[in-house]
Design a protein around this nucleic acid. Sequence first.
DNA 1: TGTACATCAGTGAACGCGCGTTCACTGATGTAC
DNA 2: TGTACATCAGTGAACGCGCGTTCACTGATGTAC
Lengths: 236, 236
Amino acid sequence: MNASLTARQRARAELTREIKAEARRQLAEVGAPQLSLRAVARQLGMVSSALYRYFPSRDELLTALIIEAYDALGASAEAAGDPAAPVRERWRAVCHAVRRWALDHPHEYALIYGSPVPGYRAPEATVGPALRVPLVLGALLQESLTAGNGAAGGAGGSSGPEPPLPPVLAAQAATVAAAIAPDVPGPVLVRTLMAWTQLFGMISFELFGQLVGSADPADEFFGFAVEAMADFIPVR
Amino acid sequence: MNASLTARQRARAELTREIKAEARRQLAEVGAPQLSLRAVARQLGMVSSALYRYFPSRDELLTALIIEAYDALGASAEAAGDPAAPVRERWRAVCHAVRRWALDHPHEYALIYGSPVPGYRAPEATVGPALRVPLVLGALLQESLTAGNGAAGGAGGSSGPEPPLPPVLAAQAATVAAAIAPDVPGPVLVRTLMAWTQLFGMISFELFGQLVGSADPADEFFGFAVEAMADFIPVR
DNA sequence: TGTACATCAGTGAACGCGCGTTCACTGATGTAC
DNA sequence: TGTACATCAGTGAACGCGCGTTCACTGATGTAC
């Protein structure tokens, strides 16, 4: 499929990949704030100014790495679990895949879910890749609902009545639903947002050291919470 | 109470405070990675080497700021709500106080709950201050229990039976309980750990921009989730 | 198929910057007798 | 109370470092006729 490309174009694509790969390697070692264009160039045996043929600035290289990280995490969430398995089992698989990826790529995780790099503003192009994990969750919800076995019930199996959503939140839920899971009612969607924040909250706490002294190692805590969240959303 | 101090000692204490205050000011502006000893000294009208009479290194200054941030957040959690009010109302007040502080001090929040500064390792001295918020939550739980009105019931008001804790998690829960809320049973404590991770997960997502496009602004979402968490723990 | 010109990748030197930290020093504050 | 010495705060210069980015250049690759 490179048949129609000139040697120059192929070389360019190749080197662009190599630059990103080397940058990712260094990111994994030293973290985003310390990532240096000059070090990347040095490692590739180039002079630092040569990188400017490929990325117009350090920020653009960072952006490329952010997109790659979102894509890698999104891909592992999408690939998680047997598509034929029950929804709940896939929920479990997705959560564990997300955590697995984060533990395996702590600096890349920090790049996308940690504190923003000061002075850096994420451009539009990162929005799509960032949505891949939420889209996976939305698809699970939607499927859970149309299979007629859950995702529309009361609050987490509670006996009490569902509390109504306040107006702004109801509108936000409707917008999200329209984008990722059209048939899912607002309250279920809001509970999913909660589970989403909790999923990443747990992973961040584990990775950033807040669980030291309590739920560390966090494997069982995480597994237990994943089940509880499934009950809470609910996903069946 | 400074009566027994020499002028030198008073001047030293004073300047130490001023250095930290100026560092905090700059932290709020540029974030931790960009915080510079030289800039702090410059702003105080000192020569940069003079700071070394007060802090042996940049890392020590960062440590002082981390401790101050944990203490400030802890203090506002401790001060939240009317001590005579019902536990559930105080739970609400604590959650909202924590969020308020985070929104008002985003860079300080990022310093303690964001991605770790690469190469920096938090020393022992930060552990105590970091525990203040969890201690507040533990005290609420304990009180909720001894008041005999909650915190010992089934899973979040569910009708089903309580799932048992896996062994490692049960042991971790027991350790935490011993430290902050001795009479609270393991399952309730684990649900509190979950609520804790969720509380900070929501705040981090809001602050770090992950909610843009869904629950943003997050006021109603946050308020709704706080109630749901109270039901889930349960705190009454 | 061959030649003339245009495009582009990579070089090497330089600009301008700011950083953390060390060190020998001066002069003021504190202490012991 | 006064003097001699010790302690300590702050200075100013310097070390050594690495960074992102620009720019004029050479030489190779690609294109048009």
